[in-house]
Amino acid sequence: MDPLEDVLSLLQVSSYLSCGMSAGGRWAVAFPPPAGLKFNAVRRGDCWLRVDGLPDPVRLHEGDCFVLTRPRPFTLASDLALPAEPAHPLFAAAGDGVARAGEGDEAFLIGGGFDFVGRARELLLDDLPPVLHVSASTPEAATVRWAVGEIDVELRRRPMGGTLVAEHLALVMLIRILRLHLERDPGRTAGWLAGLADPTVAAALRGMHARPAHPWTVAELARAAAVSRSTLAARFKDVVGKGPLEYLTHWRVELAAERIRRGETLATVARSVGYGSESAFSVAFKRTMGCSPRAYRSRLAHGS
């Protein structure tokens, strides 16, 4: 079982595409904080990206794309010294599907984002840097450029089912950006994402994700990773930030929360994630989520 696929499925990741943006001359556009992940790709021209809270702006060239992983305001501009106009009126007026900034069309960007169900920030986003920038000059980014190019084609030509195809391509792009990030700079990533890039830790993660209800021991996970018990325990803690059995408890609780959202009984949920009794399950759930399974279900019912 692929842990990345597991988590993306659990979060029920869905993508959406926004209007394209054409810009020219001297221009600057300010965007509000995104709710989930936000991406833009430069199909023509160059511009600057400035994200609130980050010390340095990023120069974007034709073929570059970026993903914002934090709910922070950001600005796209030809010149960051210019006063930025708010994005909403520009995109609200985009009757032909293209928002326009400045004068001319030297730059053209496509964009969109990803929404999540569940505790996305802790599971996925907290382990990522605030900005994932993929440069067109990076040879390994060819598959990302391919996905962006196909999204652009679907949006411009508007064939039958084009929006749905583009949204699926955006999810492909996200997975490939995450892969590229892990391959290129694993040292900057923490948590289970970093574990996917570590051969020893990844073997243990795959085992736990394949059989989350199995009564795993550290010794058994170490055998799956072909290392000693002490080596696995130390490596897992160093890379992921928690021990393997603590991680297993957290993952079981995440699976349980998703099953509770689907309306399954607590007894069924407890058994499905490896607990022999509701009481043992309730203790683990409350320690991880801060509330009992019954309280969690009640909050869902009341929309809180």
Rank of each mutant, 00 (worst) to 15 (best):
P3M: 10
E5G: 11
E5V: 03
D6P: 00
S15Q: 06
C19W: 06
S22Y: 00
G25L: 04
R26P: 00
W27Y: 10
W27F: 08
W27N: 06
F31A: 06
K38F: 08
N40A: 15
A41T: 06
V42R: 05
V42M: 12
R44T: 06
G45M: 09
C47L: 14
W48K: 00
V58R: 02
R59P: 00
C65Y: 01
C65V: 09
L68A: 05
F74V: 00
T75Y: 01
T75G: 00
L80W: 07
P83L: 07
P89T: 06
D96C: 07
A99G: 13
R100T: 05
G102F: 09
G104M: 04
I110L: 15
I110D: 09
L124N: 04
L124A: 09
L124V: 09
L125G: 00
L128A: 05
H133I: 10
A141Y: 07
A142M: 07
V144L: 08
E150H: 15
I151E: 04
R156F: 03
P159A: 12
L171M: 12
I175D: 01
R176K: 10
I177V: 15
I177S: 01
R179K: 14
E183I: 05
E183H: 09
G187P: 09
G187T: 08
G191S: 09
G195Y: 02
T200E: 10
A202L: 08
L205G: 02
R206H: 12
H209V: 13
A210N: 10
R211Y: 11
E220A: 15
R223C: 03
A224F: 06
L232H: 10
V240T: 08
G241S: 12
H250A: 14
H250C: 02
R252F: 10
L255Y: 00
Y275D: 01
A284M: 10
R287T: 10
R287S: 12
M289C: 06
M289D: 00
G290V: 08
C291K: 15
S292D: 01
R297Q: 15
G303V: 04
